[in-house]
């Protein structure tokens, strides 16, 4: 290991001066980059550009007419509302889950920690039918909620919210956990020794440190929820204008051979996703600067 670190310290000095030499030492630059670029262009960029070109065939007026149709606007409303509500709940509860998993010690903690990734690993259609069974009128939770409060969960907007909460949770927890682990206990100790109560140091010292990660987690969960299809369709009810999410509307339009309409809505979704991706990248940069300040 010592030899390794010695070589590393020398080579970082050398690399600073001659980047080009390094390029010649290791083989395979042209082959690997060439293959990676070809694969990326053929399988990702070409199909994506097909959507934009097809939509441009509609013309600007046609595009605007397609995406401002009442049913389309209503489905965007349902999707954005449910995604934002689910991401907000996940941000609050996910912060608590992450805090408990990082700071406390109790039996079964590692199992809980592993379980947080379940929504990543469980296929969406499996989650969808399971949630429909649980929250349906005869379900384990659906029946008592209906009897006690008159709440109908499955086949309403609440069902969409439940499914989106399920799939969004790991994004918040896994974004916050590393930041919480990196928190230096010295700040909290300093706050305590200066007379701050535990509550004050949680709100005034730890809260601001976690803010960028919490916002990033919200954005990641929201972005994922917006495009989600499999887990939602089984519990949503899928009524046009009421419980129809955008991805489902695209499928409905495709099944009616309305390729232009489907493409217009899909392009709106793509633009929205890319905007969110940009925002998430900026947020991540902000978190790094925020923590380094």
């Amino acid at each position: 290991m010592m030899a390794g670190s010695l070589i590393r310290s020398i080579s970082t000095k050398v690399n600073g001066i001659c980047l080009w030499r390094r390029r010649q030492v290791l083989p395979g630059f042209g082959l690997t980059l060439g293959f990676a670029l070809l694969y990326l262009c053929l399988l990702v960029l070409l199909p994506l550009s097909a959507a934009f070109l097809k939509a441009s065939g509609l013309g600007w007026d046609g595009f605007i007419r397609a995406v401002t149709a009442p049913r389309v606007v209503a489905s965007f409303g349902v999707s954005v509302r449910a995604s934002a509500a689910a991401a907000a709940v996940n941000t609050v509860l996910g912060t608590i889950v992450a805090w408990v998993l990082v700071r406390y010690r109790f039996a079964g903690k590692r199992l809980l920690d592993a379980m947080v990734d379940l929504p990543f690993a469980l296929p969406t259609s499996v989650a969808g039918i399971a949630l429909a069974a649980i929250y349906g009128p005869n379900g384990l939770l659906g029946a008592p909620l209906l009897d006690a409060f008159g709440w109908k969960v499955a086949y309403t907007e609440a069902g969409i919210f439940v499914a989106l909460t399920f799939i969004g949770l790991p994004f918040v927890v896994r974004t916050l956990q590393p930041v919480m682990l990196d928190l230096d206990p010295e700040y909290e100790e300093a706050a305590a020794s200066l007379g701050a109560s535990r509550w004050q140091s949680l709100v005034r010292v730890i809260g601001p440190e976690l803010l960028p990660a919490a916002v990033t987690g919200f954005a990641l969960a929201f972005a994922r929820a917006l495009g989600e299809y499999g887990s939602v369709v089984f519990v949503a009810g899928n009524m046009p204008m009421k419980t129809e999410i955008v991805p489902l509307l695209i499928i409905t339009k495709l099944e009616q051979y309305d390729y232009r309409g489907a493409t217009a809505v899909a392009v709106m979704m793509l633009v929205l996703s890319f905007l969110l991706l940009l925002i998430i990248n900026l947020l991540q940069r902000w978190s790094v600067r925020w923590l380094a300040r």
Binding site: E228, A266, L270
Partner: peptide
Amino acid sequence: LITLIDLPFAVSPVVSGLIYVLLFGAN
């Protein structure tokens, strides 16, 4: 390049299917 590699994660699964239909479908 690193950003472009992550791109498919940002795309809704349904839209991912649709773009292949637009490329290889009957129309």
